[in-house]
Design a protein around this nucleic acid. Structure first.
Length: 621
DNA sequence: GTAGGGTTAG
């Protein structure tokens, strides 16, 4: 190094020292003022802060003699005072303030400052650079680790997954201990944002980075896999983790059990139950809820009751979830008395009913047409301080619509809208189908058009309703157009959608197109049900092709589908019109033996057939 | 900071 250069360096160092000294003096002066008199002097005389620079600010903020409270007030003053725009705290100042908060254990406040940094265009830096700056400014490795973790969590809280991922990478590269709790928040946020496909990938990264894995994060990932229909993958993951020493608990098992219950596959359900027994995992209320749900779903009511009894024998306390499920099933079976008995039981146990429980009960009353009682229950829940939410309003509306009480539905809707209720996809569909049921097709369509105007995106159900309306109006062209439009919009028609359209075609006598759709739905994995067959049977009968109708009728029975009163009516009247009263009476008897009550149409058909064919000899009883 | 519950269309 030349002498000249050395002298320059020395000069610079000296001048730095002198500025540094000047800064220190200024900082000390301001700090003292803040301690003695707070912000007031600076507000009345802003020139006191005229020579402020970031070094001075940092010296003030990091001064442990200045109480944190004063420190915060000063920091916020600098941030918000427009006349001090040139001294607005920069990233380094913010980091200094965070360090100060950290030393005082103010973690919640740190997160707020971090959030501010993340959303401020002038303060936001690439993750890497910011962390390096923290490491450079502060030699405390513990703080840097904690800082990274805070930053990661704040990104997660604000759904900034890429930034969070960057923070994770940095922590991994630096060999920091990564907190599982933070990773769990990341997993939950992913799931909440519909990014379930990223769960497993991130979980693998956690394992590779040496994050201590607990049953919590494992279960979240398994749940995510189950929700995507990848139950087997979930089970494999569980086995893999068990071999690594992470034991599954009752919640993990419930998660897998619940996924299998939805497939209604008794074999796999029993297998999980056996596994739970082997592993000595005791059932809890959630296990019983899932099992009761399963048995009710497959129509084994007695088994479901047995589960409820077993739970009490094993002294597992029922909770609100379980009662809601039980009540809902009683209501579906129209056993309102039992539903209310369970409701009383819940209250006697000191459990607090919530909107879900009330929702189930109100639905039960609506299903049985007891609208006054339903309204009373709504008042009751309100008096308990429970908010009448979207579901309850929709349930009530549906109750009124089903009874054709459209004026009451409209009145309720108007009242609720005044209270801030906003109709959703359900509401519009309930109103439209209510109108359509009364053949008020114009109004029905208006409700569905209104939802589009209100920017509510129609789903497959809404499209199906509209298609159905057009079919009822005989406008099969428009129905078909909508059917294609919905698919272009990414809504996949389900069995019910196909049924609506098939019914439209059969009513027009366009049987060829109806069969074409039936084949198409099968090819797409949508299974024809009794409604599909009933429409086809009806269509064939209407056009005198009773042999074709009988073929369909036998085909559906072979497939294990049980004809209902409508199917029987269609085929019986078809046979009668064709003069085949023997066959008609045979099916009539079959229908009676199946426990179906014939309606007026069946009688008229049969009586009519007696007139045309003379005396029947089949011995109808 | 892990699981289970109430609403819609033929």
């Amino acid at each position: 190094m030349s002498t000249q250069k050395l002298s320059q360096v020395l000069e610079k160092a000296l001048s730095r020292n002198s500025t540094s000294l000047k800064n220190q003096n200024k900082a000390a002066e301001i700090t003292q003022t803040l301690i003695n008199s707070g912000l007031k002097p600076f507000k009345t005389n802003p020139s006191l802060l005229s020579n402020l620079n970031s070094n001075i600010i940092n010296l003030i903020i990091s001064n442990p003699n200045l109480p944190l409270h004063s420190c915060t007030i000063f920091f916020n003053f600098l941030k918000t005072n427009f006349s001090l725009a040139s001294q607005k705290p920069n990233l380094k100042t913010h980091l200094t303030f965070i360090l100060r908060l950290y030393k005082d254990g103010k973690f919640k406040e740190i997160k707020e400052v971090l959030k501010f940094i993340i959303f401020d265009d002038n303060l936001r830096y690439p993750v890497e650079e910011m962390f390096s700056l923290v490491g450079f400014e502060c030699n405390d490795s513990n703080f840097l680790q904690k800082f990274c973790d805070f930053f990661f969590r704040v990104c997660v809280d604000n759904k900034m997954f890429e930034e969070a991922s960057g923070a994770f990478d940095y922590m991994e590269r630096m060999g920091f201990k990564i907190d599982e709790g933070s990773c769990i928040l990341y997993l939950i946020a992913l799931r909440k944002c519909g990014k379930g496909d990223s769960l497993l990938g991130f979980f693998r990264r956690m394992i590779e980075s040496g994050v201590e894995i607990s049953v919590y994060s494992m279960t979240i990932v398994i749940d995510g896999l189950c929700n995507r229909g990848e139950v087997e993958k979930g089970r494999e993951l569980m086995n893999e983790m068990v071999s690594k020493g992470v034991m599954a608990n009752v919640i993990t098992y419930n998660t897998i059990l619940n996924a299998y219950v939805k497939t209604k596959d008794f074999e796999v359900v029993s297998e999980v139950l056996r596994l739970m027994e082997e592993e000595k995992v005791e059932y809890n209320a959630a296990t019983y809820t899932v099992l009761i749900e399963y048995f009710e779903c497959v129509g084994k009511h007695e088994e479901a009751e047995k589960m409820f009894d077993e739970m009490r024998e094993r002294r597992v306390e029922a909770d609100v979830h379980l009662y809601t499920s039980m009540i809902s099933w009683q209501c579906r079976r129209r056993n309102i008395k039992r539903a209310f008995a369970l409701f009383d039981q819940l209250n006697e146990k000191g459990l607090v009913p919530n909107a879900h429980v009330y929702g189930a009960l109100i639905d039960g009353l609506c299903k049985t047409g007891q609208m006054e009682a339903a309204q009373m229950l709504v008042n009751d829940m309100q008096s308990q301080g429970i908010v009448v939410n979207q579901v309850v309003v929709n349930t009530l509306l549906h109750g009124y619509c089903k009874k054709g009480m459209m004026d009451d539905a409209l009145r309720l809707l108007a009242v609720m809208e005044k209270k801030g209720f906003e109709p959703d996809v359900f509401t519009y569909n309930i109103m439209a189908s209510g109108m359509s049921r009364l053949k008020r097709h114009g109004e029905a369509k208006r409700w569905l058009f209104m939802m589009v105007e209100k920017q509510v995106i129609p789903n497959v159900v809404n499209f199906t309703t509209l298609i159905h309306i057009h079919c009822k109006e005989g406008n099969i062209v428009e129905a078909k157009r909508l059917f294609q439009q919905m698919q272009r919009r990414g809504e996949r028609p389900n069995t019910i959608t196909y049924n609506a359209l098939i019914d439209g075609y059969t009513k027009k006598g366009e049987m060829k197109d109806a069969y074409k759709l039936r084949n198409e739905m099968e090819a797409k994995g949508r299974i024809p049900d009794i409604y599909t067959y009933t429409s086809l049977v009806h269509g064939e009968c209407n056009y005198g092709k009773v042999d074709e109708a009988m073929k369909l009728f036998n085909e559906m029975c072979q497939k294990g589908l049980v004809p209902n009163v409508v199917t029987y009516t269609a085929i019986i009247s078809g046979l009668c019109k064709d003069g085949r009263s023997d066959e008609a009476f045979r099916l009539y008897n079959e229908m009676i033996s199946m426990g179906h009550m014939p309606d007026q149409r069946v009688y008229s058909s049969l009586v009519g057939s007696l007139y045309t064919t003379g005396v029947n000899s089949s011995g109808c009883n």
